[in-house]
Amino acid sequence: MSRLLVVFIIAAGACLISPVRAQPAQATLKAALLYRFVQYSEWSDNPPAQQHYCIAQDTGVFNSLTEILAKQAQVSLLTAADQASECTVLYLTAELASKPEWSQLLQASDRLTVVEGAELFRQGAMFGLIAEPNRISFRVNLTIARQQGFHLSAQMLKLAKEIH
């Protein structure tokens, strides 16, 4: 009897399920996070007149960010590391951790850097996206951010998983 009751409850539940908000694709979520990181960061010295977002080898994030920003800022998809000289915001995917030409770009000052994964974050990025089983969180290297002349908002820092 109790089995029948539970089966009935599950069946009734399944029938009553109505469409719920669809989950965003990973690329859309990463692009939106990137947009918010920039919004909550201030270039204390030499703020750029217009932001130039550079997305390294991730077409999905590039397309989503282009859509979010419309014409508010320049967005470029980088295919080679030497194309990054004009970038004010740089995003590197985890696959680039083993490629020194890309990780060297993290050392440049006056550039907000966001990377995927712990490996690239350790190489000197300001923001690191942390992939969790069903979420994305982030860590911040406050020391590097301050050294490179950035002021990060307290509101954002309260939401960071780790502050280094």
Partner: peptide
């Protein structure tokens, strides 16, 4: 954004 579930 940090609350949004997503397949990783």
């Amino acid at each position: 954004l940090l609350q949004q579930p997503t397949a990783t």
